[in-house]
Amino acid sequence: MYRRRAIIIPARYGSTRFPGKPLVALNGKAAILHTIDVARKVGDIDGVYVATDDDRISAAVEGYGCTALLTSALCRNGTERVAEAASILGLDDDDLVVNLQGDAPLTPPAFIVKIFGFLDERPEADAVTPVIRCGAENYLRIAEDIRSDRIGATTSVLDSKDRALYFSKALLPHGSSVATLGDLPVYHHVGLYGYRVRCLKAFPHLPVGPLERAERLEQLRFLENGHAMHVVEVDDDGQEFWELNNPGDVAYLERALPSGKSARPETDRY
């Protein structure tokens, strides 16, 4: 049976942590457009879409030749927005969707390929997300954000079957250090999710729990309601990975991204 495979990028202007983040210029081009570039490098997919409730973001996306789907301003997070977009697209329960965060333009396309592959190979899995094992530099960057009271990277701890036990803006597990990374790994969560559409349809109807409210991490809704979030470890192959979490991240991402404005690509044909 053929399953449609879509990449949906949720983007909203009114982020409480960083308002206007999708349209922040990185080397002369809006962050959301860099993220579209990532999605377009993934082969064997049926479409790349941006799900937004903001006309400014929609105009920038459409002007870049990508399809914008206007979703409700009542969506409480990116996963709810992606779920609504999947409904607008008329996707079936067994179709596959990757939720690519609009603030993660350094995401290697290979991570997305691995997520689709995982769902293809594991029919029992309805939701999966990747993590990177922290090296010393990444660990110290996360620790510095926490010391400086900046909302930065997310870390995760896993069970023996590579399912998420927890996600946090704290540095997990407690007691870790650069010296212990070999024996006590710290996993940097990549803001990327793969779903079967039936899982997405159920998400907005699950109760919001205290952990999701406290951490402001929507993936905790699955865990608090007893659903498995599978985790796959990915290798960044030396490519720098960081999200656009704070205004202070702009300079870092600009150093890692290609410089200069790129030409407007040919319109997507989906």
Rank of each mutant, 00 (worst) to 15 (best):
A143M: 13
I32K: 12
L192A: 03
N246F: 00
I88M: 00
R5H: 15
V197P: 10
F203Y: 15
T107E: 08
G194K: 03
K261L: 12
A202F: 08
N245M: 07
S168N: 07
Q239L: 09
V128F: 02
V24R: 02
L100P: 14
A11H: 09
V197A: 04
Q101S: 15
T180P: 03
E124A: 08
G117Q: 13
P108W: 09
C199Y: 10
E137N: 03
R163E: 07
R147N: 04
A68T: 01
S148C: 04
A85P: 06
A6Y: 14
F116E: 07
A179D: 03
E233P: 05
G135A: 04
G152D: 00
L89S: 02
P123D: 06
G238F: 06
E233W: 07
Y252H: 13
E84A: 10
L26F: 00
E212N: 05
L223S: 08
I88F: 02
E137K: 14
A25G: 00
I36L: 12
A153R: 02
D46F: 12
T71F: 02
F116Y: 03
D54H: 11
E266T: 13
V128S: 09
N246D: 13
G194T: 14
I32E: 02
P258L: 05
A39W: 02
V42D: 07
I115Q: 05
S262I: 01
G78N: 11
P210I: 13
V98K: 07
G191W: 00
V98G: 05
S15W: 15
C134S: 15
A179E: 07
R122W: 00
K261T: 09
I57E: 06
L206T: 10
P204R: 04
L74H: 14
S87H: 05
G260I: 05
R269I: 12
E266M: 11
S58P: 04
S156V: 09
F118N: 11
D92S: 15
A6S: 15
E137P: 03
K114P: 00
L69K: 06
A68R: 02
E254M: 14
S262Y: 06
Y252I: 13
D268K: 01
G63I: 14
A39V: 07
D94Y: 01
P258R: 01
G90E: 12
G209C: 09
A83L: 15
M1F: 06
R76Q: 12
Y252R: 15
V97L: 14
P19V: 07
H230S: 14
C66D: 11
F167H: 15
A170S: 11
S168A: 10
N225Q: 11
D249K: 05
Y270E: 15
A143D: 10
G248N: 10
D236F: 02
V231G: 04
I132P: 01
D92C: 15
P207A: 10
D162P: 00
A59W: 01
R147D: 08
A263Y: 03
P247F: 11
D237P: 00
D53K: 13
G117K: 02
I8Q: 06
A153L: 02
D126R: 12
V48S: 07
R198A: 15
L140N: 08
I8Y: 07
F18S: 08
K41M: 00
E233S: 11
D145E: 08
E121A: 15
V82G: 12
K114L: 01
